[in-house]
Design a protein around this nucleic acid. Sequence first.
DNA 1: GAATGGCCCGGCTGC
DNA 2: CGGGCCATTC
Length: 851
Amino acid sequence: MVELGAELGEIAGLSSPQIQAARHEKGPMVVFAGAGSGKTRVITYRIANLLATHRVPPYRVLAVTFTNKAAAEMRHRLTKLVGEELSRDLWVGTFHATCAKLLRRYPAACGLKSSFLVYDDDDQRAVMNRIYKDQGIDDKKFPLRQVLGRIHKEKQEGVTGTDFIPGNFMERTIAQCFQAYDERLRAANAVDFDDLLLYVMRLLENKDSPEGEELRKKFSYVLVDEFQDVNRVQYRLVRGFTEKTQNLFVVGDDDQSIYRWRGADVQIVRNFRHDHPGASIVKLEQNYRSTANVVAAALGVIRVARDREPKELWTANQAGEKIPIVFCVSERDEAAYVAERIREAMEAGTPANEIAVFYRIHAQSRVLEEVLRSERLPYQIIGGMRFFERAEVKDLVAYLRLLTNPDSDVDLVRIINVPSRKIGDTTVEKLAAFARERGSSMFAAIEDFIHSEGLTAQPKKALARFLALMKDLSSSAATAAPAELAERVVEESGYRDMLSRLDSDEGEAKLQNLAELIGSIGEFEEEALAQGTVPNLEGFLERVALTAAQDELKDVPRVCLMTVHAAKGLEFDLVLLTGMEEDIFPWRSQDNERPGDVEEERRLAYVAITRAKKHLFVLHAERRMIFANTRYNQPSRFLGDIPREVMRPVISDTMRAARGRFIDRPMAPPAEPPRLAFRSPAASSPSTPRVELDSVRSPVRAEGEPARAAARPASGGTLELFPDVRLGGLRMVEPVGDELPVRPNFSAPAAPTRQGFVRSMQQRPGAGPERAPGERFVERDDDAGGSSSSLRPRARISADHGLGPGTRVLHKTFGTGVVLSLDGSADPAAMVQFPGWTPKLIKIRFLQPEE
DNA sequence: GAATGGCCCGGCTGC
DNA sequence: CGGGCCATTC
């Protein structure tokens, strides 16, 4: 074992604030750790120090991480530092995994059986659906999603069905659903994600419970990573654990708080010192991860944020490249550009798994995936349609869950007639009613139900056969290992027959997915055995439920595609940040005209930028097809916050090819500068002027030019940058002419029509890239044959009409405006900026040149 | 009871 | 655009 004495810092090469934090022993401490400032090292070394220097028994230390992957990584590092013997007994895990582990220890104290299941969103919906049916609640009046959302919100604040007090009529129904929901979960011996934490919290706070007392004494040191994303219940948990010792050590960065929407409360970290008088505070402000330009870009974006713990990130790293801000025509053009840069980087020796493509929402991944596929670039997608969400995988899991816990009605209903056993909806409904009357689970009721009145011979027989099957499998469960049991389920349930009878690629793919699931059960068994624990089905099912998107990230040489949320805590040599457009990033929700939380979006952008170690590309598309329609979005306001000195505008080849001649044409600046108003940001807050920021950009502005930005609201989305950078005035910024090689492949404009992506192209065997062993089958269109290169270039309508970006035009209603861009359909339209309006898409025939 | 087609509606981020 | 739900039909 490594002895870590006073020379800890020197041994590890830590900076002095890092040493200060790592050496901290007793009492509360908060570490404000900027992005890339080495916080994981600090936590790891502090634990090592506690174990080695202070001789704290490992099982008395709890370290809470944000993902299972981070937990595994931390344990791995600790094993290297202090040896396996010590690291093995540490409690390292996410809040959810830790609570699940504790609940399996004290199930009875919470009214559970140790075989309890964790219900996911789908299960929650299924349970609630039943309640709606049984109680005749109208989904139109009380949308199920909203009711579940409300329940979720309440539970995150520590409120359960029995404590929920309705405030109005609507809430009376919610209270009714809430109670019924909790009851049904209890009857099913199941918990949802929130319960996992709530149950432990209740136990911990129960002064009369001996188990609670045990829990309060259990840990002498608690460490929490990513503390800025902790919610109220999680905070109460850690307070409960450290009530006696006060040894609570938290690490976080309020600038990286991106989970407010799921209950996280930044105020918890900001108020930490008030909650814990005498708490030590350390700030880690040196970034070791990124180039100076990347850090400058990140700072530019975050320094405008409204509330922040004062801190200044800095770096001693080299400047690195200027950050290309890439202007693309469409999402397809954007993807093509991304593919080019990936290929280039890989050819230059960057490992594929050091490359990441980020997007704000999963829906953006599809096109990227298509292009990477057709370009034969290896990739993996994190999150999105997850493996465990596929129907066949869920079916097999449902069988396994039912075998573990026969009280789980949602699982029974899911598979009782899959594959088809001639047990129809009517029979299932009758069974449900029968079970309800007897107050038992559906599975337990089958036996008697078969012998009850009013059931015809056919369903009787079918049910009896199903029961026999389950009993048979159940006896296998007693002896067979989990993976073997899963295999028997697939065989004996008839699932395999059902799929092979499909006789299609689809059936084949589904069988492959099942094989992979069984394979992963096998992996789980091996891991458990290696750790000296018995591999049981409960353990595997729990892992399935608690697997985070990031946990799927495999250490294989593939480019990683993920949402920015999923990227939290990770780092890559090369980051391509796509979709930097208003309404995408910052995202604007469609419903209720809610403006969304721009501040959180800003922090999210900060997280995205700070993931990059060496190279960062920021892309935006002028036109984007998303959710079935085309949007023309303004460039993201966050682009305007990146200091001019560290960026460099780049025009995609496609855009250059389509209207290159306009890009370089000198143009008289419009008499009245186009005001690029955004749809709603001004509403957010009429607070401080952006004087500070303005001065940062002052080199750009000519002498005597009015400080346009200064008078505008802080988050008002004023991009003084863009009147220059946008097509019309590009030449004013910087020559962009020869910076990029022109690849004929990508010079054709992106798909203007749908014909290019005919479905019939999909899934020809051998059409896609070779599939590596273990690679998941992706049930998506593979339009390898329809990629951009085969498409006809769009007509240069701009030339035909004498209109181009920057042209001043006249409209009957809106008056004089400036053309921003043009669209190339049969009936061409132009995006026009009229002073005082949001940019409008107007058919060219309604416009006329100004003169 | 199963299979198919049409229609409506939501559409983000995730343990 | 796509998933889920309903109605129609065999």
